[in-house]
Amino acid sequence: MAAELARRGLRDHRRALVGWCLGVAAYVGMIAAIFPSIESSPQLDELIASYPDVLKSLFGLESGASLTSGPGYLDAELFSLMLPLLVLVLAIGSGARAVAGEEDAGRLELVLSYPLRRRDAVLAKGAAVAVEVLVVCAVAGLVLLAFDPLLGLDLSISRVLEALASLVALGLLHGWLALGLGATVPSRALAIGVPAGLAAGAYLVNGLHGLAGWLDPFRFLSSFWLVGSSPLGGGVDLVGVLVVLAAALVVLVAGSLLIERRDLETP
């Protein structure tokens, strides 16, 4: 049944997923381990205060947050850019591979000749993408929580969970967009390019809308703005997270319906 496609998707990607987890854990651990030396240099905050606003806002430092506090430091170093970037690369790659990539390789032909509904196939593959995103985000969260007592990061568990929820929401939106696009149009380039471009645009709008007034009206379209970019220090906009999750579901379901009507490409 279609659940086999979720299982296969995860199995085919299990080695890469282990690699991702190790990589993310190492990166998060390394960033966290540097914190004690940052904490002991209060002059850093003065330095940051002298930065141009545009830099501060791109690094998630706008709300007067301090680099020498654990949450402020992790927001700037991890949650404003690097972690979302890593999760998005994983999610978009996985989503684009699941349908567009398989169709490109000619492997959908046999699968879709089996007695299963195409929409179920897409949803099963969507579930596999979600599991990958969840696993990697959970690993990042676990590493942070494990290092918190050792390094005095001063984290609250609920804030960390919220921050992870916002990461998951971003990952699902872009991963399922890649999947849904691949289900709608047989193009791997489109399935990767559109979500990647959208994420880059959303990141820039979120960072710059306060400085460039003409961008301000578009901030509602930015997934990064919706979830908020300093989740540990400034908190997460849970309504925004729900909006992003809803949008993710919409693109997934749309893709699963649109694949029903179209021709499968000849391998």
Binding site: E4, R7, E109, S113
Partner: peptide, 29 residues
């Protein structure tokens, strides 16, 4: 398609699976 079997003209299988893993997977599907 329930009681139909199909062999594509240009057959593409999951390259990394072994033959029996591929057949197991298709059987579950």
């Amino acid at each position: 398609r329930r009681s139909t079997g199909y062999l594509p003209g240009d057959l593409r299988l999951a390259d990394r699976l072994t033959g029996s893993e591929q057949l197991d997977s298709l059987a579950r599907l």
